[in-house]
């Protein structure tokens, strides 16, 4: 894996909200490199731009300025349709608030990304089989037909993880995945993410909890839309030393 093209490369990415006097730079020149197979945490005070960065990395949003290269593709130049395709088959996004479709079973929720898949057309039966396999893999084989409101927070987040995985994405992004959970469910979710990392997945996760961050390979600290510092955590298989982040100062 190493020595190849990085999975994520952002070059001087900016995101400006508003115009003129009242404009806010949510991201103010962020350049990061994340290699395949890495598990990276992003930390920073509230309002420092973590979610903004994740949304751009997840192709939900486009930078005002700068470039974002995802797996050798310059996605900062792409239109809405192309971004939708990228979201569908390259990225699995996990939200703090799960974002499951209400009044829709776990199985149906996990099947949704398959419905919008272009390069892998499956029949409804095939979609159900695939979704079921992934739900079983996250330990929800016995909750297939439960609707979100019938599931605990931890279970809902696992459905969301299954949905993120179902199209076998290149990159998993998680914005405070344990933020709404109690310690025990949070730990279970973290275990699941570590397991995915062990299996070779590339994961970028926002967290407020230093202890959780410490269990990843690297922590990128944001402040006021800029990278404050990058810490190598040393646990687990380390990524290439000093690769991945250049400290930019403005």
């Amino acid at each position: 894996m190493m020595g190849q093209q990085p999975i994520i490369q952002t070059i001087d990415v900016r995101k400006i909200y508003g115009m003129g006097e009242i404009s806010v730079a949510a991201l103010d020149g962020v350049s990061i490199i994340i290699e395949g197979g890495e598990f990276v945490a992003i930390m920073g005070p509230s309002g420092s731009g973590k979610s903004t960065l994740m949304n751009i990395l997840g192709c939900l949003d486009r930078p005002t300025d700068g470039r974002y290269i995802l797996d050798s593709l310059d996605v900062s130049e792409m239109d809405r349709v192309q971004l939708a395709h990228i979201r569908n088959n390259r990225i699995g996004f996990i939200f703090q608030s799960y974002n499951l479709l209400s009044r829709t079973s776990a199985l149906k929720n996990v099947m949704v990304p398959l419905l919008y898949s272009r390069n892998n057309k499956r029949s409804a039966e095939e979609r159900a089989v695939v979704a079921r396999e992934v739900l079983e893999a996250v330990g929800l084989g016995n909750r297939l037909n439960h609707q979100p409101q019938e599931l605990s927070g931890g279970e809902q987040q696992r459905v969301a993880i299954a949905r993120a995985l179902v199209n076998n994405p290149l990159l998993i992004l998680a914005d405070e995945p344990t933020g709404n959970l109690d310690t025990r469910s949070g730990d279970e979710i973290m275990e699941l993410l570590h397991e995915l990392h062990q299996n070779g997945r590339t994961i970028v996760m926002v967290t407020h909890d230093p202890e959780i961050a410490a269990h990843t390979q690297r922590t990128i600290h944001l402040r006021d839309g800029q990278i404050e510092r990058v810490v190598q955590n040393g646990s687990g298989p380390t990524a290439k030393e000093n690769q991945g982040v250049r400290h930019e100062s403005h």
């Binding site: 349709v81 939708a84 395709h85 979201r87 569908n88 996004f93 974002n99 479709l101 990304p113 919008y116």
Partner: peptide, 16 residues
């Protein structure tokens, strides 16, 4: 609106 956002986030295009 939220449902639409969720669908978009997992890859629904404007046409979808």
């Amino acid at each position: 609106t939220r449902e639409i956002g969720i669908r978009q986030s997992v890859g629904a295009t404007p046409d979808d």
